[in-house]
């Protein structure tokens, strides 16, 4: 195990393959985290509309995160 924080060669291909598998996971995670919080809030405050709103909010944040991490 000689990996002391240095990347191997061909890091471009590796980066791309990583990003392709990571981007949908990030978006799904964003929707799950925000949607989960919204689901709990909707149960607590008894406002059904919070569920779709939080889901869309999570989608927007996760999309922004993907843009910031991989899109620049």
């Amino acid at each position: 195990m000689t990996g002391n924080g240095r990347l191997p060669d061909e890091s471009q291909d590796r980066e791309f393959a990583n990003a392709v598998s990571a981007a949908p996971a990030t978006i799904l995670a964003g929707m799950l985290v925000f949607g989960g919080v919204g689901w709990l809030l909707a149960r607590w405050l008894d406002i059904t509309a919070l569920r779709p709103i939080s889901l869309v909010l999570g989608l927007v944040f996760a999309g922004y995160l993907v843009y910031v991490r991989y899109g620049r």
Binding site: S21, A22, A25, T26, L28, A29, G30, L32, V33, F61, A62, L65, V68, R69
Partner: peptide, 24 residues
């Protein structure tokens, strides 16, 4: 992830945690 505005980390850390350790 490096190079993000500081307040954003509050939101980023849970999302990335769930993404890396559960969803992938």
């Amino acid at each position: 992830p490096p190079d993000l505005p500081k307040p954003l980390y509050l939101i980023v850390i849970p999302i990335e945690f769930v993404s890396t350790f559960f969803i992938r």
